[in-house]
Amino acid sequence: MQITTHSRRSLLLGAGAAAGVLAVGSTGLMRPASASTGFEPTQTMRGGSNNYRPGAPFVERLGEGFWMSGAVRRAGDGAPLAGVRIQIWAATTLGGEREPANHGSVLTAEDGSYRLEMPQIVPNFGQPHAHLAYDDGAFQTVFLRPVMPSASDTSLSADFVLAPA
């Protein structure tokens, strides 16, 4: 009974906007309170924290030819978050994910965007993918593991929506 009530209320809250209804349909049962906003917190991806080395040094760049980029927003209102540290690592032409030279941190700009130039990401354990982390305490920790649609891509983007810790 309780679940049914929640579900119906969530659906009513989200009614009117197709996107809202979709968001409630997928997660409304879990968190009805935040279901009416468009900015759900990004969930940590499976395997996202593999080969994580906490505290990757801030870098201008890790290499050349490949761009990792994205945007960081606050859950709920979607406000861009400036000055947030994103840690990035991947298997590249320089070596594997455990190679220290493949780990670096960048800060988001005023508009919440971040970008990092790095060596070409290469397929690792069967998929060309990157790892990204937000792990600095102010918000809940999130680990991402985006996969490149093609190994010949020279860029990849991954966005974060962070929930307060």
Binding site: G47, N50, N51, R98, F125
Partner: peptide
């Protein structure tokens, strides 16, 4: 594979 990346192999 385990030596290369223990977390990936264990997963």
């Amino acid at each position: 594979l385990y030596v290369t990346s223990p977390p990936d192999a264990l997963d």
